[in-house]
Amino acid sequence: MRNPKSVILKALIVISLVVFLAVNSGAPTSTFRVRLLDLFSSPLKVFSQAASFLRSIVPFHSLRQENNALRGRINMLNRQIETYKVIQDENDRLKNFLNFKKAVPYSVLPAQVIGRDPSNWSNTLIIDKGLSQGVGRNKAVISTKGLVGRVVELGLRSAKILLITDPNSKVGVIIQRNRQGGMLVGRPDGKCRMIYIALDSDVAIGDRVLTAGLGGAFPKDILVGEVSAVGKEPGRLYKYAVIRTAEDLSRLEEVLCLR
């Protein structure tokens, strides 16, 4: 007979571990692995020295064992290389992030994404910075590639970001090529549309879309994305354009909060 308490305890431990690994995905997990390796390096060294001593005194030590040891070492080094690759990738990503932070004309605060919306309806992110770090309500949030959204809920040490793909999000935008204005609205399918584009306006696939700077929340000329399709809704007096966002909002790990 299974003890339900122990099953729950086991499930909770496993789930906590999965959550821990997911939250610390990328470099921290790798650092943990490197630390583990460091921890085991001293006993490994002792073991290896003892083995070489034994090898020197035991004349019939086979080449096969040496081969196995070398294979093991190659595997270990390969694992280390993989770990370093992950760290290198993160380093490159953070370098880009830092360079971008220096280049933007606004005062920005980097933040880590710690959670995502639990529903398939709305599109929000939870970040690890809040009021005490200087994040402001309704302030724009960007990434190195473009606009992400704005702060809608603010805690002391965390904040909720409404992504531009959320149905409740509305942003004044313009098309870079001809400065044609419109409004960017989110859709429940995670895409966004630019609406209220004049019927006689010239909008083409591939046009870049920027923030208009109207309303105060979003500064002017932040890249939003590119036009991927243009259409006209029946019975309406304006065109719409489907916008492919500059940043893949479903894979964001770090963001910059404008102050």
Partner: peptide, 24 residues
């Protein structure tokens, strides 16, 4: 309630990584 809380936590943290075309 423990399972529902754990699933909510998983939903917020992990499920974004297995989303396909933004859907999870």
């Amino acid at each position: 309630y423990s399972i529902l809380a754990a699933l909510l936590l998983l939903h917020v943290t992990v499920l974004g990584h297995i989303s396909i075309c933004g859907f999870k």
